[in-house]
């Protein structure tokens, strides 16, 4: 059973205090999207064995949604960060690369 630290209140909460919310960093496709884009948004999930970004809500706590970067295989947690972050932070990327130097982000930073 996982322990994740809520980035809002700093509480190291165990899984039973949290509610899972699936893959993080999905970009909403609204009425303007075509079928393919909408399908990808609605259904395509990476389901990684390895580095994974996911949504959690501190449901039995401060109630805030946050994001977690962790390895689904080793259970290592690279870090948690606020839900309003468009991409995993530099700290998170650095923590991942420390363990997996070959790992590359699949997003491009829009500075």
């Amino acid at each position: 059973m996982l322990i994740l630290t809520c980035p809002y209140c700093g509480v190291a909460a165990e899984e039973t205090e949290l509610a899972p919310g699936g893959e993080a960093h999905l970009k909403r496709v609204g009425p303007d999207g075509d079928d393919q884009q909408f399908e990808a948004y609605m259904f395509d999930r990476k389901n990684e064995k390895g580095v994974h970004f996911e949504r959690w809500r501190h449901a039995y706590g401060c109630g805030k949604w946050f994001l977690a970067a962790r390895d689904t295989n080793t259970l290592q947690v690279y870090g948690t960060y606020r839900a309003q972050t468009p991409h995993p932070t530099d700290d998170i990327v650095a923590a991942i690369r420390k363990v997996s130097p070959d790992w590359n982000p699949d997003w491009t930073r829009a500075e």
Partner: peptide, 19 residues
Amino acid sequence: VTRITTDDSRSLGWMSPDE
């Protein structure tokens, strides 16, 4: 954050970053 202040009769607890 995650604390509560109190006097004899009242307490004010931190529930969430905006609550």
